[in-house]
Simulated scan of single mutants.
Amino acid sequence: MSGTASKPLPLRIRLPYTTEEEFIDKYGSNVARGGVFVATRAMKPEGTGLAFEFVLADGTRLLRGEGVVVKTQVDAVSGRTGMTVRFVKLDAASKALIDRVVSKRTGSVEPQA
Rank of each mutant, 00 (worst) to 15 (best):
V36D: 00
T48W: 01
V74G: 05
L15G: 10
P45R: 15
R41A: 06
A5C: 09
P10W: 06
V85N: 03
A51I: 00
P10K: 14
Y27I: 06
L15I: 05
S2Q: 05
G107I: 02
T106N: 08
L97D: 00
E22C: 08
R14L: 09
G82S: 14
F23C: 09
L62D: 04
R61T: 13
V38M: 07
T84Y: 11
P10Y: 03
T19E: 03
G28W: 01
Q73A: 13
E53M: 05
R12K: 11
G28R: 01
G35V: 03
L62R: 01
G34I: 13
R100G: 01
Y27E: 06
K44S: 07
M1E: 13
D99F: 14
G79A: 05
M1I: 03
A113W: 14
V36E: 00
A96H: 11
A42Y: 10
S6P: 04
G28M: 08
K7M: 05
S94Q: 08
A57L: 11
G79V: 02
L50M: 12
L15Q: 10
D25F: 06
V101A: 09
V31H: 08
Q112A: 08
D25K: 12
K95N: 09
D91V: 00
I98F: 06
V88T: 10
K44C: 12
P111I: 14
P45E: 15
V70I: 14
R86P: 07
E46Q: 15
K89P: 08
R61Q: 15
P16L: 08
V77F: 14
G47T: 12
G3M: 11
Q112T: 15
R86N: 04
K89Y: 02
R105W: 12
L97F: 02
G49L: 11
T48L: 03
S94R: 07
I24F: 11
S108P: 11
Q112W: 13
